[in-house]
Computed example of a mutant assay.
Amino acid sequence: MTGKTAAASIVIAAFLTGISVWYLQLYYYYDTIDPEQVEIRLTPSDGGAPRPLEISEFEGIDATSSPLRMRGCFRVRESLETLRREYTVMPDPTPLVGPGWFECYDANTVGDDLESGAAVAFLGEKAIADGVDRVIAIYPDGRGYVWHQLNDKYQD
């Protein structure tokens, strides 16, 4: 009887731990970003300080547990061609997958569109956190997406 009790206790503890880790990773640490508090900036191609981009319809999430958890969706008025002329195009953008419940952001679609040329990625801000850059992807129709990714400091 004690062996069965011990085994059941281990299984229950493992199950509860798994559920806790799942919940913490997908829901607990994320907070929505207040659209009034966010400023999306792009780095000019001449290397100057990042400049604010006029955006609307912003939806975003972030977490204090990691600088890589920031994701956002928005719209821009400026044309993609104007942005391409004035700002630094990101050489190797890698959209990071966000939680499934954050529906406006689909990293796989954005990544495929960046590879095909249907969207263009720009350097938002270099070293927004230690070893992390902010990347902005813009579509010709004005849709925009933002995420953070590791920069050269931690890539090997």
Rank of each mutant, 00 (worst) to 15 (best):
A107V: 03
G47R: 12
E81K: 15
R77F: 05
G100M: 03
K126Y: 08
P95Q: 05
C104W: 03
A137F: 07
G111L: 05
D130L: 13
D31F: 06
P99F: 01
A13N: 00
G48Y: 12
L16P: 05
K4Q: 08
V97M: 08
D46C: 11
R75W: 10
D113V: 01
D106A: 10
G48Q: 14
Q37C: 00
Y23G: 00
E115S: 14
G18N: 06
Q155D: 03
G48A: 12
R41Q: 15
M1V: 07
V135G: 03
S20H: 06
I33L: 09
V146I: 14
F58V: 05
E78S: 14
Y87P: 09
L150G: 13
P44Y: 07
Y105H: 13
A63Y: 04
L53Q: 04
P95S: 07
E57S: 12
Y28T: 11
V76P: 05
L68N: 05
D106F: 04
F58Q: 10
D106Q: 10
S66N: 15
Q25P: 00
C104M: 11
D133N: 12
A13H: 01
Y30M: 09
F58P: 02
D152F: 07
A49F: 08
G144N: 06
A63C: 06
E81I: 09
D106G: 01
T109L: 14
D113C: 08
T43C: 09
E81L: 10
G48S: 11
M90N: 11
V11R: 01
T32A: 08
I10F: 03
R85G: 07
Y30D: 02
E78G: 04
P99D: 03
